[in-house]
Amino acid sequence: MLKDITIGQYIPGSSPLHKMHAPLKIILTILYITVLFFVDSPVSYAIFTVYTVALVLISGVPLKVLLRGVKPMLWIFIFTAILNVFMTPGEIIWSLPIFRFTLKITNEGLAAGVTMAVRLLYLIMGTSLLTLTTSPLQLTDGIEKLLKPLRKIKVPSHEIAMMMTIAIRFIPTLAEETDKIKKAQTARGADFETGNIIKRAKAMIPLLVPLFISAFRRADDLATAMEARCYNGGDNRTRMKESHMTALDVKAIVISILAAAVVLLAEFWT
């Protein structure tokens, strides 16, 4: 179950999206999300959809993989859609009285529900596209670069990036270990599957305690191993995969800004 986390599920490839400068890719993803929240009218939605589909096609990431990132969010999806459908006031098209309440669906509610669901879908697709085409190292490097100006106000940009790198590195290790402990405890008669929430939470204790002890041990070992290899924080550190902006990145900037402009124009001028 822990293994389904999309972060770090990088799909190696050689598409333009893969080759883009990571910090720029992060900025353009933020731009994508920002524009998405202004999109409301059908026309701009259509344009935005074309743009998103184009990005997916360019990336070469299989749609199946992309939608896998959506699955864990399905409940939030449905919940948001339902809330919107039933809670938005407006022209009633269907209603059902229950006790003293009336469950009603309005025209506006239906529109809002659909809009919200599509918006969430694109939000997840956009961010997944970033993590699927950027290796964890490039991603953390990119974040480090973007946060670098904030070092002046004491934001520990290098440390944040290093923490993320290590977290990504240890997710599979800890997932595997959780599995192992769970099996060992199940063999001893522990029951993680049945009972109410409190009972199940209690059953987690014999799982979490060994996991934490081992995690602290690992942290200790790792710190020693990093020190032994001359780790001394971010100062004077170089990177093997130093990436720079290329002509491709300039094109990406132009295309993104154009796309954003067209979508926003469609939204506010029509």
Partner: peptide, 22 residues
Amino acid sequence: DNQMVAAIVEDEVAFAPENLGV
């Protein structure tokens, strides 16, 4: 398992020389 920092083998090998500013 406890002495690896990076999520990819070649990045792991690059870690020490990166620290040394090579």
